[in-house]
């Protein structure tokens, strides 16, 4: 990968994060939504043992729903005043665009996951344990990279024309299954839910990593075509 491409990607990622710092849409709207989802799960499932056992899965479900909104926001920035079109006319490298958007999305999702993990501890009584910290962090990072790549691919497609927002969940959710499954098992092993051992979590990190790499590479190749119109 050329240095120019990486520099452009970094520039695009920094721009996205700067927009978020100024507008605070994710902090003021998406984050409260995610927290609310965590609370609503408790209404649906009732308190007691169920919540504690299901905590990792519920947390990742909340992450998945929030990802959909975050992806939409990420591309709303680009389409609000035709910026994506300007970038395309200017011939900005679509691979750099993909990597930059995905990187910014990953940073935003990691922040979100950290807060939701804290909420899972507070609301669901999911207690982290010292020996699982490394697994917890690696799971979160690899899952986030996969989600960010996946979200950017289909977010770009949905941003290509008007009236395509409703397509986003239909395209993302079925293929996000590996992330939901892998990340949930990984966090379960890290927390020791159902007396699982930490070592049981590592194959899932493997799955998440393969997913992130495969989706990331194919997304970088496909992105130029998907945002074309």
């Amino acid at each position: 990968m050329s240095a120019g491409r990486l520099r452009a990607a970094r520039r695009i990622a920094v721009k996205d994060l700067l927009v978020e710092r100024r507008s605070r849409v994710l902090v003021n709207q998406v984050l409260p939504f995610s927290g609310l989802v965590m609370v609503v799960f408790a209404f649906a499932l009732g308190t007691g043992g169920v919540l504690e056992r299901a905590a990792p899965g519920l947390m990742w479900l909340a992450v998945l729903f929030s990802t959909l909104i975050t992806v939409q926001r990420s591309f709303a920035i680009e389409t609000a005043d035709g910026a994506l079109e300007s970038l395309r006319v200017a011939g900005i490298d679509p691979v750099a665009l993909f990597l930059g958007k995905a990187a910014a999305l990953a940073v935003e999702l990691i922040a979100l996951i950290t807060v939701l993990l804290g909420l899972a501890v507070v609301l669901y009584g999911a207690e982290p344990r010292a020996e699982g910290v490394v697994l917890l962090v690696t799971t979160a990072i690899s899952a986030t990279c996969g989600l960010a790549a996946l979200g950017t691919i289909y977010g770009g497609l949905a941003a290509g024309g008007p009236g395509r927002e409703t397509l986003l969940p239909l395209l993302i959710l079925p293929v996000a299954a590996p992330v939901l499954i892998g990340a949930t098992r990984g966090v379960e092993a890290a927390l020791g839910t159902d007396r699982t051992a930490v070592s049981e979590g590592w194959p899932w990190v493997g799955l998440l990593t393969v997913f992130a790499v495969a989706v990331g590479v194919s997304g970088a190749l496909a992105f130029g075509t998907l945002i074309e119109d």
Partner: peptide, 21 residues
């Protein structure tokens, strides 16, 4: 058309700017 891309500037009804910046 890739070779053309960076040499042309198109300004339509929208300005292509980031409003929050």
């Amino acid at each position: 058309r890739a070779a053309l891309r960076h040499r042309v500037g198109l300004l339509g009804h929208r300005n292509g700017l980031y409003g929050d910046l």
